[in-house]
């Protein structure tokens, strides 16, 4: 018989870790990061796109949607975000998340995913030549 989760998806410590990872990622990449964890309303990809469109600045936002019951992870990048974070780089971050999720580490996978996406989106520092 399947066990039932008795409480929230995350402990307060895990929640704080995810918040910190998002803040650090935004500082590093200058993009907006958002993470949704929960059951999708219908198909996951269209649902993720609807969530992404509802963000304050969708064009420069990166949204991670994790649907634990369906075992699906979706990443949606806005038009501006995609210029510094292409789909291949997103797939690499998804691979890292998948392995953590498969090992049962939901919060750790989210944190790792956010960190990897931010690292890929980090622009090289411009050096003034004059």
């Amino acid at each position: 018989m399947a066990r039932v989760a008795t409480g929230d998806a995350f402990t307060s410590t895990q929640r704080a870790e995810i918040d910190r990872a998002i803040r650090d990622a935004e500082t590093v990449s200058r993009l907006e990061f958002s993470v949704y964890v929960g059951r999708s309303d219908g198909e996951t990809r269209p649902f993720a796109q609807r969530l992404h469109a509802a963000l304050a600045a969708p064009a420069r936002s990166v949204l991670i949607v994790v649907d634990p019951p369906a075992r699906i992870v979706e990443v949606v990048t806005g038009g501006e975000a995609r210029r510094v974070l292409d789909d291949e780089e997103v797939k690499l971050a998804i691979l890292a998340m998948q392995s953590a999720f498969a090992a049962g580490d939901l919060a750790g996978g989210v944190v790792r995913g956010v960190q990897q996406l931010a690292e890929h989106a980090r622009k090289p520092q411009l050096r003034h030549t004059d």
């Binding site: 399947a2 066990r3 039932v4 989760a5 409480g7 929230d8 998806a9 995350f10 402990t11 895990q14 929640r15 995810i18 918040d19 998002i22 958002s34 993470v35 949704y36 964890v37 929960g38 059951r39 969530l51 634990p68 019951p69 999720f101 498969a102 049962g104 939901l106 919060a107």
Partner: peptide, 15 residues
């Protein structure tokens, strides 16, 4: 927190 194999009963969380 949520462990794999559990039935998902958590409220959605949007960070």
């Amino acid at each position: 927190g949520y462990q794999p194999g559990q039935v998902w009963r958590g409220e959605p969380e949007w960070f």
